[in-house]
Simulated assay, not measured.
Amino acid sequence: MSGTLTGPLAVLLVAAGAAIGAPLRYLTDRLVQARHDTVFPWGTFTVNLAGSALLGFLTALPADQVVMTGAGLGFCGALTTYSTFSYETLRLIEDGARFTAVASVAAGVAGGLGAGAFGFALAGAVTG
């Protein structure tokens, strides 16, 4: 990712961002999923869209290596979760919920791209 730091400071910033993003992902996922009585992975969908929107927003801002490293790589990287997305998709297929699996993949990919574009456009509108 351009605009990010390297070296020991980068490791500390990524770790700090991830230390906030990972628990927030877990808590948000559990909170959202508990409100839906469905096999669709709403919690993962929510955190992935939120993280995509935030990362899109951050990338549209004037480059700040500290922010992009800590918030972009660390926080957004830990908030979003491709591994859980993949795991939940495979579980849906194994459980015979193939339509839901396909819908989850389509919505997750399209939604993530759309959320990223929205965040990018929003930052452009805010910063002029």
Rank of each mutant, 00 (worst) to 15 (best):
M1D: 08
S2Q: 14
G3P: 12
T6E: 13
G7K: 08
A10C: 03
A15H: 07
A16K: 09
A22I: 12
A22C: 11
P23V: 14
Y26S: 10
L27V: 08
L27G: 11
L27R: 09
L27E: 12
L27K: 10
R30C: 12
Q33G: 13
Q33W: 00
H36F: 15
H36N: 03
V39I: 10
V39Y: 00
F40I: 08
P41R: 02
N48T: 07
A50K: 02
S52L: 05
A53Q: 05
G56L: 05
F57Y: 11
A60C: 04
P62E: 04
P62V: 03
A63Y: 00
Q65D: 15
Q65A: 15
V66M: 11
V67P: 00
M68Y: 00
G70M: 12
G70Y: 01
G70K: 04
G72D: 04
A78Y: 03
A78L: 03
L79C: 06
T81C: 10
S83I: 15
S83L: 14
F85V: 12
S86M: 14
E88F: 09
T89H: 06
T89Y: 05
L92T: 07
L92N: 07
E94L: 12
D95E: 14
A97F: 01
R98C: 10
R98H: 14
F99P: 09
T100A: 15
V102R: 06
A106S: 13
G114K: 02
A117N: 03
F120R: 04
A123Q: 00
A125S: 12
V126A: 15
